[in-house]
Design a protein around this nucleic acid. Structure first.
Lengths: 348, 348
DNA sequence: CTGAAAGCGCTTACAG
DNA sequence: CTGAAAGCGCTTACAG
């Protein structure tokens, strides 16, 4: 069934059928009804490729999940507690707005080209990029092609400086505020020996959380100690090894701030195996508030990152930008919230 | 940049450019190289809409997640521990094969039409449908249009009887074997009073798990008791209420078989609040082996459903079917595996 | 208000 | 082996 068939059946031309479908104002109510009736009767929907080719939108957005770090490990996207709900939330939100979502995962530097390619092939009207190590080069190239892009967790300064012009929105959360709050909470409980299990520092949130941790300690008259400065890279396995090494030194802080919950849960696993009690012997704090955070025992004290709101905002922004061809780089920041559960207590 | 530009730059016709791109055999190596060089130089990729319109594939598959039951609740797909990894695994597998994935969520009966519409609009070459209450009517209609479909968790008999003809593959797991194994495990530990927290019975796996539970008890000379036959509908909230009511009766079984892990975890929450110890006072068994199952305390004894393998198989099958226009309905069954952890022990 | 026609960017018989 | 031409199914100036 093509528009021509509908036209014949309704006794009008293809032009009129198209006008009805695209809701043009200059078609009389009676004609519209007549055409609509046939369309409905035959369950007709225009061929999306033909529409797109003739100049209409694809009504599709691309969602690109970048996770280079985990490329060769078993920890692919589908096991990632952070991205998984984000993907689902984007799909939900976009579908509710009648937009299709093409999801792509980027596992290697070589795969970055796929982002550009998807746009070159005109498969989508706009894109959302989330993940670690987002390639600024690709972002600049897509921006130069004129496609709207929403980027999650990226330094706004870097974008401004390195991309310059484009239709770009950057969404971050208040990692600084969140870090400050949870460190202050530890400080106020009486902790002075607070270690850190840091995330990836080529990640904006990784850097902010790390730097805010240090700044907050120093502001409170405490010098961060190198031996409690662990690198976990946001990855469970690496975090686990770092904590094992820490335990071996026999010199534990009274609290450990883990820059994401995945690492915090890994740390708790190691400590539990070593018979070190959380929170009695050591307090563990996380970040993100992923779903398992409330399920582990003791339940994790952490900073809630509003991942669903971020996803919703990303879709809203990207759809808004499709209709607006103005070159414009904007930044949005979503509120984090301290979530106090059971994994932290006063030091003994 | 269009194929015509490439043609001009390479000194050939559009036909030849197309032949090179589509890897036709009848173009001399030298011509091929010449064209390829220009293509690479300008980073050209054909417009996907134009290709599709001219008769090529879309290189896109649709993934439809149906979860009607959760329509009006806060528990949308993105919070679902079962579908989430499935979505991610399908994307991973398909992307690795160079295929795009259009993901759609179906939350209301009205949304079923979207599945058909996506095919009518020619947005994809084939589809994978997963979830609860998959609409056989829509499946039959899409099948009648000739599109390949892979359906997860559906009664093969129903498909055969109600759809009849189509390019359809059904994938299930060995829910019968899995249920039998975990019930036998409980029985062998000495349990005789084994209750069930059942799933949705309009779901194939829900029915099989329920029926196999009953059958296994009866085969072992035990009559299932009505007061321990709880309806949880696979949904945390409903399961919770059912367990609360059970606890109120004061008449607990020594073991409770929960037809999915989500419900098992809910049950453990309720019991923990009521100060009933798992596994000392009551053993809890689950099904699915979702990620939190190993994280809760006590870690959940459950049946592992190979969700990643199912996703991989679904992609493999669907891609295979795209090239093969034979009408054929086939069935695949993936192996489950008993996973013994800490939530079950001998009855006192 | 409405239709005929051009055009979107490809692929694929067809003819040579 | 290769090009000219038709055609895929739409949308949109254009002309009336």
């Amino acid at each position: 069934m093509r528009s021509e068939d509908i036209a014949r059946l309704a006794g009008v031309s293809r032009s009129t059928v198209s006008r009805v479908i695209n809701n043009y104002s200059n078609v009389p109510e009676e004609t519209r009804r007549k055409v609509l009736k046939v369309i409905e009767q035959y369950n007709y929907s225009p061929n999306s490729s033909a529409r797109a080719l003739a100049g209409k939108r694809t009504d599709t957005i691309g969602l690109f999940i970048v996770s280079i770090a985990e490329r060769n490990s078993a920890t692919r996207v589908y096991r990632n507690n952070y991205f998984s709900p984000f993907i689902d939330a984007v799909i939900d939100t976009a579908n509710a707005r009648g937009v299709y979502v093409l999801v792509h995962s980027i596992f290697s530097v070589h795969d970055y080209a796929k982002i550009k390619q998807a746009f070159i092939e005109r498969r989508m009207d706009a894109g959302i990029i989330v993940g670690t190590e987002k390639d600024i080069g690709v972002i600049a190239e897509v921006a130069a092609m004129g496609y709207p892009l929403v980027i999650i967790d990226y330094s706004p300064e870097d974008i401004l400086r390195l991309v310059g012009k484009g239709r770009i929105a950057v969404i971050n959360s208040t990692d600084d505020k969140g870090t400050r709050e949870i460190i202050k909470y530890l400080l106020d409980s009486g902790h002075k020996d607070i270690g850190i299990l840091a995330g990836r520092d080529n990640t904006y949130s990784g850097r902010v959380r790390y730097e805010t941790y240090r700044k907050t300690l120093i502001e409170n008259g405490i010098e961060p100690r190198a031996e409690w400065d662990l690198k976990g890279e946001f990855i469970k396995k690496i975090a686990e090894q770092a904590v094992v090494r820490l335990v071996k030194t026999g010199n534990l802080p009274t609290a450990l701030f883990c820059c994401n919950d995945d690492m915090a849960i890994s740390a708790m696993d190691v400590l539990s195996r070593e018979n070190i009690k959380v929170p009695d012997d050591i307090s563990i704090a996380g970040f993100d508030d992923i779903m398992p955070a409330s399920l582990v025992k003791p339940a994790l004290t952490t900073v809630h990152v509003p991942i669903y709101d971020i996803a919703g905002k990303a879709v809203e922004l990207v759809l808004g930008m499709i209709g607006d061809t103005a070159m414009n780089i904007s930044t949005y920041t979503m509120e984090t919230k301290l979530v106090i559960r059971e994994s932290c207590k006063k030091p003994v």
